[in-house]
């Protein structure tokens, strides 16, 4: 009887532990297989689509109208491009999913860092501009130490209250 109990306990621990270790990270799947590289190569800046970066805390994901500015008529034969017009026909916004996330207790402003601080997008976002398909997780996993290292390097505030809220 004791052996059966022990065996059960070990089995539960092994399965549970294995699940915790192998648990897949939450992967971000975008509604359209967006190709950043093609857009950059055609002379677009990050700000062409992420247009709120200079005014607000968030850079923003592009609205459908921004896409239709170029894609109202087909530019390629890509079925992914066709999806843009399908969303337009249905009158829906494209449900782009957010890739880079910060905890809710952090105040990060794109205007502060990009416009006022002159930090390049690539510092935090890596080579997303060179990606040909949407990455399922951010290239750089931002940690507080990354923020602090940069703040120290530039001699700006390291007061906790400056960013935590």
């Amino acid at each position: 009887m004791n052996r059966i109990l022990l065996f059960t306990v070990i089995l539960v621990l092994a399965v549970g532990g294995g699940y915790l270790v192998a648990r897949p990270f939450s992967e971000v799947v975008q509604p359209i297989a967006f190709n950043h590289k093609v857009h950059i190569d055609n002379g677009l800046d990050c700000s062409a689509c992420h247009e709120r970066y200079s005014q607000a805390a968030v850079a923003g994901r592009p609205k459908l109208t921004t896409c239709l500015f170029c894609h109202e008529t087909p530019l390629t034969e890509s079925p992914e491009e066709e999806k843009v017009r399908q969303y337009a026909e249905r009158g829906e916004e494209i449900p782009w999913r957010r890739l880079t996330r910060l905890p809710a207790h952090v105040y990060f402003s794109h205007r502060r860092h990009v416009v006022l601080g002159g930090i390049a997008c690539q510092t935090c976002h890596g080579h997303i501009g060179q990606s040909t398909s949407p990455p399922s997780r951010p290239e750089i996993q931002l940690k507080m130490n990354d923020c602090l290292a940069c703040h120290r390097q530039h001699g700006v505030t390291t007061d906790c209250n400056a960013c935590h809220r």
Binding site: P103, H105, D159, C160, N161, H164
Partner: peptide, 15 residues
């Protein structure tokens, strides 16, 4: 919880 240079007594929840 600490006093910052502007005299505000901060409370940093994740800490």
């Amino acid at each position: 919880t600490f006093k910052n240079e502007e005299g505000l007594v901060a409370q940093i929840y994740p800490r």
